[in-house]
Design a protein around this nucleic acid. Sequence first.
DNA 1: GACCCGTGGCT
DNA 2: TAGCCAAGGGT
Length: 340
Amino acid sequence: MRKETAALLEWYDHHAREMPWRSPPGSRHTPDPYRIWLSEVMLQQTTVAAVRAYFDRFTTRWPTVADLAAAQDADVMAEWAGLGYYARARNLLKCARVVAQAGGFPETYDGLLTLPGVGPYTAAAVAAIAFDQPATVVDGNVERVMARLFNVEKPLPLSKPELTVLAAKLTPQTRPGDYAQAVMDLGATICTPRNPACGICPLRPFCAAQAEGTQSTLPRKIPKPEKPTRTGTLWLARHPDGRWLTEERAAKGLLGGMIGFPGMGWDSKTAHDAPPVTANWQDVGQIRHTFTHFHAALTVLAATTSARPDHGMFQPVNPENLPTLMRKAFDLAAATLLPR
DNA sequence: GACCCGTGGCT
DNA sequence: TAGCCAAGGGT
């Protein structure tokens, strides 16, 4: 085992953060692969703080992968609402059904990689953490730690292959799961993107960037293109009986599979060219929301009507089950149509 | 490889 | 406040 790896594991033994899905360092108990997989999917591009409540709700409602596999699609999408990247929820269900049918999770990196929604990172994480295999985990934290430890000045994503090789060299044959979590904890708490806490870092004696004084400039990244702003309209029609005019969005693409309100202009794939129902539409204000690759600035039109809609269905709406953009529009319309 | 896909916290 | 960032994956 390399000295960097040993130092990292020694640090982790005393500084591991507690998480609902995590076994304590060196634990003899084998972690539940279902809980590890579920947490890793939720943690894709998502912070630990945001995941905790969702993880608790999912595991309470669906304690095993078989329970999840038997769930209704709409229930899982509703439970995922607000967490973002909704393709994860669709793939989560697909994966649960494959695994339940097979009688359990594959225990190898290659086997895990075949599952829906499981890519190189998640396959390695589950293999290492749940099955104690020496798979190399490479996420944003690991990229940052390796770039600094070895003073890699080539920018991401060009440097990703090189960083992956370096990370593999540090992966031990024993305790690979603890090692994977240790690097990620280090990246999350000490080797942070800005203002890294080099003074208390267990890898400081080995860190090339620290020696060169370049740690705050690494990892370098190729600049991202600017986000355009898309403008458009959302129509929120409330039936006198309290239901709202909603439509289930297309399974793929933006907010795929989620409940939404009819709109125009901003979302080319599901755009309409006229209001979904005849009504006395009232401009109740604007909402702004930023997605991965564009800003949305939308005018919200609201009305109460019992006319028959051209598309969509009047349905009961629980705002907690809406994606955030739609919830913003709902809150605005409800404040006007249902003043308290 | 390029592009698509959410959200909330932090600075 | 506007941008950056997070335990990425699919197409």
